[in-house]
């Protein structure tokens, strides 16, 4: 598998042909695991990291049920390749900037990734488009079982799976759902959502942007507590209570916009389309912002001539590392802004 096999198309987790995908972009579950008999990553020298990497890599690559998979060496790769994998949400920034032997095993369909020697020895991750946490849990738990039969995990009856940071202790599970919430943003209701999420011990962070400031109104909502609540319970809460409630709020906000401010809404969407179709230079920030408005316009039936798939694709293709991988060379900021505008014009006109 080469990165250029992935770089010209959208990720499977961005597939719009699933229920609720106008609001719920994707579901992901991550499990943090460490090997018994080894120190955690911060105390490992390169030799020990290499040993852990080798062992986990062999085990994971031998798992037949994962289908077409490949190992990507992160220590040896270029920074553009690392950024590309971050943009596709296959590795964390932490793994990208880490030191020493480390890597990731990814499935060709991009719905599975196993990061080795990140903050923990192993970070398993399974993704699915839309709201599909039950399936993610079933798959990741099975993969986890297979690996757990071959090696001994660091585990105690009292604290569960032992992790480098106590914030992951116990189940080591992080359930995350990526949501597109433009109407809650326009109607200024995000603060309310963030406050209630905090009360429920949930973390909200923006995607495609820095910190909680989300460029393009994409947010990832995840559980914070990993100890004392079973994996099934967390998954069920997200699948049946938390996410459906947020989806409902976003729908109400969208309906209200249509009733009260249809002109303002249509103006915003039309302007977004006009700029995206005509710009000659466009920053990543501006492109994300306008694509988000366009995505909302299509999902609310205000624009019919562009498919949601095209928009989802553009969210990825216009990211800095995607532009450079597809061009086959490094580009400075201005060159990227030109190529980004060209890419947008070619797909939207």
């Amino acid at each position: 598998m080469r990165l250029t096999d992935l770089s010209t198309k959208t990720s499977r987790w961005f597939d719009p042909n699933v229920p609720l995908s106008d609001i719920v972009v994707s579901s992901r579950i991550r499990l943090a695991r460490n090997l018994a008999g080894h120190r955690f990553i911060s105390r490992c020298d390169d030799e020990e990291k290499q040993e852990i990497l080798q062992r986990l890599k062999e085990i994971i690559l031998s798992l037949k049920e994962l289908g077409d998979i490949a190992f990507i060496d992160i220590a040896g790769g270029s920074s553009i390749e690392r950024d590309f994998l971050i943009e596709r949400q296959l590795i964390s920034r932490n793994l990208a900037i880490g030191r020493g032997p480390r890597g990731v095993v990814i499935a060709a369909n991009e719905l599975f990734a196993a990061q080795i020697n990140e903050e923990d020895h192993l970070r398993l991750c399974v993704l699915a488009p839309g709201l599909n946490l039950d399936k993610c849990w079933e798959q990741i738990s099975r993969i986890d079982d297979c690996i757990g039969e071959k090696i001994e995990y660091a585990f105690s009856r009292r604290y569960g799976f032992l992790t480098a940071c106590p914030t992951n202790l116990g189940t080591g599970i992080r359930v995350s759902v990526m949501l597109h919430l433009p109407a809650l943003k326009i109607t200024d209701q995000l603060k309310k959502l963030f406050a209630s999420a905090k009360d429920m011990n949930l973390t909200v962070r923006g995607l495609f942007g820095e910190g909680t400031e989300a460029v393009g109104d994409f947010f990832q909502i995840s559980n914070q507590v990993t100890l004392g609540i079973s994996e099934e319970q967390i998954v069920e809460d997200f699948q049946t209570l938390i996410i459906p409630k947020i989806v409902e709020y976003e729908r109400i906000a969208r309906d209200r916009l249509l009733v009260k401010d249809a002109n303002i809404l249509d103006d915003r969407i039309a302007r977004a389309l006009a700029v995206l179709k005509n710009a000659r230079l466009i920053s990543s920030h501006e492109a994300m912002f306008l694509l988000s408005n366009l995505r909302m316009g299509i999902n609310m039936g205000r624009i019919k001539e562009i498919s949601i798939n095209t928009i989802n694709e553009l969210f990825l293709l216009t990211q800095p590392a995607h532009l450079q991988i597809n061009k086959g060379r490094t580009l400075n900021a201005e060159q990227r802004d030109i190529l980004r505008a060209e890419t947008l014009r070619a797909k939207l006109n």
Binding site: D144, G148, F155, F161, G170, V225, G228, E232
Partner: peptide, 24 residues
Amino acid sequence: DLKDVIEKTQDNNLTHKGKIPAKA
């Protein structure tokens, strides 16, 4: 020392509930 840290970050929980790996 860790007990307080764990309690604070884990909503006062101190005991694992959930999966137990085969080897354990």
